[in-house]
Design a binder for these strands. Sequence first.
DNA 1: CTGTTAGCGCATTCAG
DNA 2: CTGAATGCGCTAACAG
Lengths: 336, 336
Amino acid sequence: MVTLEDVARHAGVSLATASRVLNGSTRQVGASLRARVEQAAQQLGYRTNVAAQTLARGASNVVGLVVHDLTDPYFAALADGAMRVAEDQGLMVMVATTHRDPEREIAYVATLNAQRVRAVLLAGSRIANPGVTRRLREELDRYRATGGRIACVGQDLLGADTVAPGNAEGAAELARALAGLGHRRFAVLAGPPWLITAQDRVSGFTGALAELGLPAPQLVHGTFDRDGGYGAAAEVTDATCVFAVNDVMAVGALASFRDRGIRVPEDVSVAGFDDIATLRDLVPSLTTVRLPLSDMGARALELALDPSEEAREPRVERVSGEVVLRGSTRGLTPEG
Amino acid sequence: MVTLEDVARHAGVSLATASRVLNGSTRQVGASLRARVEQAAQQLGYRTNVAAQTLARGASNVVGLVVHDLTDPYFAALADGAMRVAEDQGLMVMVATTHRDPEREIAYVATLNAQRVRAVLLAGSRIANPGVTRRLREELDRYRATGGRIACVGQDLLGADTVAPGNAEGAAELARALAGLGHRRFAVLAGPPWLITAQDRVSGFTGALAELGLPAPQLVHGTFDRDGGYGAAAEVTDATCVFAVNDVMAVGALASFRDRGIRVPEDVSVAGFDDIATLRDLVPSLTTVRLPLSDMGARALELALDPSEEAREPRVERVSGEVVLRGSTRGLTPEG
DNA sequence: CTGTTAGCGCATTCAG
DNA sequence: CTGAATGCGCTAACAG
């Protein structure tokens, strides 16, 4: 294992000089010494020991990213955006997946704190559980207390900088668009009752329907994934339009209807939420609410890294979804 | 920033004792002291400084994962598998995305080396470029020289433990299955000529066709993604069956045919490769070659971490794909 | 079982 | 501009 000291000796300079040329010091070093050091490092195959550097500097070059599930394209897109800005800033990204276990989320925050990462990004819906949320906040506070920076993508519940998707607003706008198509009887594949993202989308949707004077939709709960959509769709009775609270669930719903010989959109319309890129070529193409996922991930990391955050209120940036009407929903004549 | 020393003082014990109870030492500590230390750590909100720990131990708890693109479900699935075993082993995962830039791949290996990660996993196709491959190998050798472990998912070209998908074999079997359906005139959406994964799938496919005495397929190159499939499909002339060398390209091909009013599978059959889970609900459902992506990622990390690798040949584990015939391909009567 | 001590590799004062 | 010395927080002998 070749160390800085080896390089310095090989180049015939002091440790300090070697350090200055090899690592981003602002200090200047004479051209000839600089060249000697660089050559020595090259010859010896020197690689900075980041652990030592982190210890000496008291700050690391790593950020942490906590997501539920990387195979969910929603999180993959967020992660991609965050990694883009990390690369731009010369930071490495440590990724942790919780698989929707809030205990693991808390544990990972502690671990990332131990790693002394520069910032941690919490992506994904909060859950409606005060005890868990409190303990997560405590862990985050501990991290923050030592200079850690935090940003979230999702609900603004953690007292940290947040990129907050307009779930309720987007769902409301979707409801209005669907109602504009002539639909009156709706069902909502609502996901788990405790997932706040799901809650918000449901309430935004039902709220808009109520404002329009339309009957309340049928609510069917289930998991937040493809199978949740598939299962919930089977329980829908008497609706001309089904809103799945995310695209992946909508895909499950589509499959469920297909398996039962129910045509979309002829027999029933289906809409989702998120506008997952990988799913854009679905047939019928999915009506949904587009969220700029990658940019949201990028923006969240920017917020977390932005140093102008001394002793002030957490910043909350709302990003609104855009309704995209596609082939999975159709217009109804007044007769239905 | 509370340190181990603070905890020790607070608990009235020595640094060493505090270290022994708080971090996974095999050494025993008396119950009463142990309790005092744990309580002190709890009260003070102590978090291990992993950088210091890594420096002192000379070994980190982090593994590196280098993938092309996390938003590609292929890599997301590999990453998911790798992260599963990382979690089991109490390791954190540092993820780097190259976006198919080989220079970045080399640079990230150097960075991960500097981080002194325990192992690095290189996922994704090698490219047919001797210069780049040589420099990558040099960087890997440097890493290995200091005890770093390496595993790859893909081609066995780096002299490291490798999980090698049977690209050629899978494609060959697919070709035979498709020929068995009665197809004679094929086209292959071949991806980039320099991508070895793509090459292998193409050559396996065409080789099997030749063995069957069938005419050589039309080859159309393009990018390895959805748009590459979309564009290449437009150039297909006179084939009853189109093989896209991965599922995501096949989705593009499906879209291309649909946009031009060409029905699948009535007018043309389409097959892919990988069996991406997110795409299983496509209509028509995609005939493909199933690869156990998540398990492959997991296995690769296991190989990298398995210490029984002293001074012996790199292990290469071949994993074979399974042909899955679905709705996007149909049988032909002898008349076509 | 517990405490003392000597580094791990590097950044950074502080002199020169 | 350059070098010598100190310490970052922790682990691992070693001694008791």
